[in-house]
Amino acid sequence: MLRIEALEKRYKTGDHALKGVSFAIEPGQVVGLIGPSGAGKSSLIRCINRLVEPTGGKILLGEIDIASMNRGELRQVRRRIGMIFQEYALVERLTVMENVLSGRLGYVPFWRSFTRRFPQADVDKAFALLDRVGLSDHVDKRADALSGGQRQRVGIARALEQDPELLLIDEPTASLDPKTSRQIMRLICEICAERNLPAIINIHDVNLAQMFVDRIIGLRAGEVVFDGKPDALTNDVLTRIYGDEDWNAMRKTADEDAADAANVAAFEAAREQRMAEVPA
């Protein structure tokens, strides 16, 4: 499906972001890309649709090499790759519907997109997708009137409106609260399963990644240092990816939350007692 061979990226500033990254993805496979900040996750994902120009290697989508395409061919292939962004990257002053329909821009001529007269099939699909992500009531709202979770749902609908063969997802939950993060991850994974759609998800929350994805690739300093099933992600492997850290302590956060809750309860009880003691 997607095969990346010896992908290199060296920025003009001299940063060597990707040092010969290679892997292949099967149809329907959801891959979590983890690694410390600056490991090259974001560069890797942006090299695939060439929002960042790779400096070497091959990106094979089916039989064609994206890395060696000219501008026109690149536009054609970008239509086949949907992308979901960290800060949603919706056009804030356009309506929800316009944002979703912008997923069809690669397919319609300028004049139709300018006058917002998209083919009926595109509009039908947009309504169906908004229904699927639970935003049917917000079609004509401006994107900046929505909450974070709702915006990311619009982002997902925009990517799917392209009828993509591959999804690139850059930190989808980084600006969301824990509960919304889970809902969004679940939605993404459900949709990928429904459509047998492969996806690459940049994610820094290791627990969340383990919970949802089929396969994890660990990146460190521009190199793949782990590639396997989520349950093979042992403390040793995490140390290899992120460096030394007390992983068991990190995983104990659930217990700590419980302890916090107990402290809060104790504080509240003490306060109520104080309030009761104050003479009226």
């Binding site: 790759i81 069809r104 392209q162």
Partner: peptide, 8 residues
């Protein structure tokens, strides 16, 4: 960036 990524 998001609009460019759609092939616009």
């Amino acid at each position: 960036e998001a609009i460019r990524a759609t092939g616009a």
